[in-house]
Design a protein around this nucleic acid. Structure first.
Lengths: 146, 146
DNA sequence: TTAATTAAAGATATTTTAATCTTTAATTAA
DNA sequence: TTAATTAAAGATTAAAATATCTTTAATTAA
């Protein structure tokens, strides 16, 4: 459904939310290994999530790394999708029409509408922290290893 | 949700189902104009839908063009998605894990499962002909014009 | 048979996405 | 201050998706 960038972004924030705090920062090496993603590409993605410290925070130098503050962990998954520019993917018309709406619908519109709404609700209500907690419990994974 | 290729493919088959028959074939020019898509690219896409005459049929030469037989019009939208290689997009894990399953789920798995199932049912039950009929009725569109 | 018309096929070009690499800047601790 | 460590930034490369162009083959009608 989403781009590779977004998949890595989601896995990264779930991992960072689960393992980091202001006292315990994580290096890019550690993160990329944990979520099984290409290191330099993951670094690029984290840079965009770090803009304005909105989702991920970072500090350069020794003992530095990436981390998330409690407030950020409580953000919905939607916040990540928004930064990654994926909102449109969910919202846009199945047939790719520029303005497909109630007033001027495509033939899939009325059927897709309710499914789309469920996707939006899911991503807007589910928080990063909830996903991190699920993963911490065990038996739920965010990488391809094993 | 889908690639541009697939969006054009869906719009094209809906139009062809609505306007063509074995006696009335449609030129690529006509089709591309009707669905507001790039002509040569649309031709390429129709070529793949024409493979084995499974979905679209074609005849070269004067009075030739593209058309669909009644049996093909009754195919589900899923058949088009399959040819276009989009099944994976719907089925695959939200976080991009290679094998995300009941046995080894990602943290979005259980929540996304039911939405995914609805998408599958929608595309497997809705036929090309049904979409064509909706469009023929007026007030429902498959292009960006007007 | 010839000319016209149309799709098929294949080569090419452009754009976007994915990924890597190199240099710079920031921070820390010795 | 110096050396080590780490992310930031930007340049570069690679691959895939999107789009176009040109040539060939098939078909029809004059």
């Amino acid at each position: 459904m989403f781009s590779k960038s977004t998949e890595y972004a989601l896995r990264a924030v779930i991992y960072i939310a689960q393992k980091s705090s202001e006292e315990k920062k994580l290096g890019i090496e550690t993160i990329a290994k944990a979520i099984d993603s290409p290191r330099p590409f993951t670094a690029k993605i984290l840079q965009s999530l770090t803009k304005d410290n909105k989702i991920v925070s970072s500090v350069s130098g020794p003992k530095g790394g990436f981390y998330m503050v409690e407030k950020a962990k409580k953000l919905p998954v939607w916040a990540v999708l928004d930064v990654m520019g994926e909102i449109e993917i969910i919202e846009k018309c199945v047939l790719g029409l520029n303005q497909c709406s109630e007033a001027k619908p495509c033939p899939m519109h009325s059927q897709y509408k309710s499914i789309k709404q469920q996707l939006i609700v899911l991503f807007q209500t589910k928080t990063i922290q909830q996903l991190a907690e699920d993963t911490a419990g065990g038996g739920i994974f965010i990488n391809n290893l094993n």
